[in-house]
Simulated scan of single mutants.
Amino acid sequence: MCAVTHEDVRAAADRIGGHVLRTPVIEVADGLWLKLELLQHSGSFKVRGAFNRMLSAGELPESGVIAASGGNHGLAVAFAARALGARAEIFVPEVTSPVKVTGLAALGAHITQTGAIYSEAAEAAAKRAAESGALMVHAYDQPEVVAGQGTTGLELMEQTGGVDTVLAAVGGGGFAAGITVGTAGGGGPKIVAVEPERIPTLHAARRAGEPVPVEVSGVAADALGASRIGGLAFEILSGDRVESVLVTDEAIVAARRTLWERHRVAAEHSGAAAYAALLSGVYTPAPGERVAVVVCGSNTDPATLTTD
């Protein structure tokens, strides 16, 4: 039995309902919806998992909470910690964008920038958590986090009346895994798990039959920069409902620009990755297929929306 169930996602929705936004869905063409999760508190879906992890833990330790992040998860943990009156300590790698570091500081987080990539920051965070006794809020590989992210899928199905396919970006995989579980009622839609070609954590794991390390680089590395798919995510995203596809950095940049120019949606590169699969033809819907694309992050410098 999977460590995260549809009932867990529904329980998470009840638990976090008063703390997160019900983000809008817009139909941009006949049978094509965008779920604007980039309008969530702290600029991404990550706050859902952060709140569910903290609220599930009961009374938080005096030392607060700790997390490692490419930026978005850290922002979410800092936001949730501030809302719950807890101290937040966030470890981020050197590739984290200045926009995200500035946002962390504004939320009152204690920031340590260390390591070239996410996995190195995660090692430092785990060591610090063991020393301090702070509650670790993992970016993607905890059941409470995956269940929290899955509430996005619950909302999406309610708002659209049901779709045939959902496209979602993959880094460590907690988001796409949560959506897979959260939309599972009644069989559920196909999930198209979209990754940059230069960070193929899920694609490589499915090919190998187990999570394996990959190189991390490219335009979306600050948010989709996990070097290995999470164990929970691999278990969930290895199922028959999931199709794994890869997109180029060029396609991500073009999708981000198109989201802005066509819909005035200001996404970061990771937030545009799922849309890139559709625009580039990596995923082509069948005639009459009802498709939803989750635009998952907005923590970007708006000055770069038309200059990349």
Rank of each mutant, 00 (worst) to 15 (best):
Ile229Ser: 00
Ala205Leu: 06
Lys190Ser: 15
Leu202Trp: 00
Val214Cys: 12
Asp240Lys: 14
Gly187Arg: 11
Arg207His: 14
Leu237Tyr: 01
Ala208Lys: 10
Gly231Phe: 12
Glu243Met: 10
Gly187Ala: 15
Leu232Glu: 08
Gly187Glu: 15
Ala184Ser: 15
Gly230Ala: 04
Arg228Asp: 01
Pro213Ile: 02
Ile236Ser: 01
Gly231Thr: 14
His203Asn: 14
Glu195Asp: 11
Ala204Val: 05
Pro211Val: 09
Arg241Met: 06
Pro213Arg: 10
Pro213Asp: 08
Val194Ile: 09
Gly209Ala: 11
Ser238Leu: 06
Glu195Cys: 03
Ala208Leu: 10
Gly239Cys: 10
Pro211Phe: 05
Val214Glu: 04
Val219Asp: 07
Gly186Cys: 13
Glu210Lys: 15
Gly209Asp: 13
Leu237Met: 04
Ser227Pro: 00
Ile229Leu: 07
Val192Ile: 15
Ile229Val: 11
Gly225Ser: 11
Ala226Gln: 09
Phe234Gly: 05
Gly209Glu: 13
Ala226Trp: 05
Val212Lys: 07
Lys190Phe: 06
Val242Lys: 01
Gly185Met: 13
Val242Cys: 04
Gly186Ser: 15
Gly239Trp: 05
Ala233Gly: 10
Val212Asn: 08
Ala223Trp: 05
Phe234Met: 03
Leu224Ala: 11
Gly188Asn: 14
Val216Ser: 06
Val219Leu: 10
Glu235Lys: 12
Arg241Pro: 10
Asp240Pro: 15
Gly187Met: 15
Ala208Asn: 11
Lys190Gly: 15
Arg228Gly: 01
Gly209Gln: 11
Glu235Arg: 11
Asp222His: 08
Ile191Lys: 08
Ala223Lys: 13
Val212Pro: 04
Ser238Val: 05
Ser227Thr: 03
Asp222Glu: 14
Thr201Ala: 06
Leu224Tyr: 06
Ala193Trp: 02
Leu202Cys: 04
Ala223Glu: 12
Gly185Tyr: 13
Ala204Thr: 06
Val242Trp: 03
Ile199Met: 10
Leu237Gln: 03
Glu235Phe: 07
Asp222Lys: 03
Val219His: 03
Leu224Trp: 04
Arg228Tyr: 03
Leu224Gln: 09
